[in-house]
Design a binder for these strands. Structure first.
Lengths: 187, 187
DNA sequence: AAATCTATATACAGACCTGTATATATATAC
DNA sequence: GTATATATATACAGGTCTGTATATAGATTT
């Protein structure tokens, strides 16, 4: 990928998260990225396409990072599930944390017909499925059910942290997750 | 309150939820409400003031409804806590459900200095405090901790339902809530 | 050296946005 | 019947937005 294109993606991602998607104009994006609108519209046909690529990139980066962390730190499936929230807490409390892309995007584009909303919804589903995979490997009966519950805790905590930095919500989400996981492992 | 003013509030609330706040112009609001901009700006000095009043109204309506439901159906504090998610599920799965105002608003106005964001954050805190009150009455040790966990489940499930209607997320949130509540009551 | 590719600079069309100004209608109160 | 309060109708100023058109600069290739 072109250097300029990835620069635009990084800058747009940051601005979307800190100022909101609809409140961020392409003029602002190119100004911060140090380029011009002509270049932006060379790489992205429309602003919507830029939004979609920003979301894809963010989701892919997050999933890769999380997957790497889990695989390089533990091998036992049940441990992966337990460690999941440790890494998520690390991510959420890091100074670079700007929120979860698909959560904000779905709020700004509430219409279910909208492509941005649809992608957000799909990414949320994929994340849930990833957790469900971990639960399955750990031989949990209702893997989908536990995955949904854990993702609710996750999304709720991210939401809380987006609302108020340093809320400490993830600490309690972790405790709740442990109770739910232990319960599911026992049965 | 004037009939027109409350009509504007109702219409604005619906449009904000279904199309997004920033994507909804005052022209659209007055057209749907069957009035004119002059009248809107008589009752609300700016659009931001309208947004704030819509949020306040929505939060008050929800809290009143929830409180009435709880008080008219059960008296025992521990039961109230258990029934909480039953009523919330009823609310979320009702056809009129349009999402939780403060969740969407905080996403559209991510800047913590913004008055709309601040009000959203405050409403989220108030709701958590309300649950904490129920937990305290039920003699739960770490009432604030449990309240935070339950609110994470709540906000996560609302988020999930906003993303995809009929997700069934609240059903699993309820199960998780029961486990957490029972655990807290036992200790 | 000429051609081509990439990026810049700048201006602008057309749409939409908030908020206001002006003029008019309608209904109630005195 | 006149005054007052409330709502309508309409137009517009000034700003921002997306997306495009036009002209130019620098760099690489042939």
């Amino acid at each position: 990928m072109s250097l300029l294109k990835s620069k635009i993606l990084v800058v747009a991602s940051d601005l979307f998260q800190t100022r909101g998607i609809n409140s961020t104009g392409v003029d602002t994006i190119v100004a911060v990225a140090g380029t011009t609108k002509m270049t932006l519209y060379k790489y992205f046909r429309t602003k919507e396409e830029l939004i979609l690529e920003v979301l894809k990139q963010g989701h892919q980066d997050f999933q890769s990072w999380l997957n790497d962390q889990l695989n390089s730190n533990t091998k036992k499936p049940s441990e992966k599930l337990q460690k999941l929230f440790d890494f998520i807490e690390e991510w959420v409390t890091s100074p670079n944390f700007r929120g979860m892309g698909f959560i904000k995007a779905s709020a700004e584009f509430p219409n279910e017909e909208n492509p941005v909303h649809q992608l957000s919804s799909e990414q949320s589903r994929q994340f849930r499925q990833y957790i469900s995979g971990l639960a399955s490997e750990a031989n949990i009966q209702d893997a989908d059910g536990l995955a949904l519950q854990l993702s609710l805790l996750f999304e709720g905590a991210v939401q809380a942290e987006q609302m108020k930095r340093g809320s400490g919500a993830m600490k309690y989400a972790k405790k709740a997750a442990k109770i739910l996981i232990d319960g599911a492992l026992a049965s």
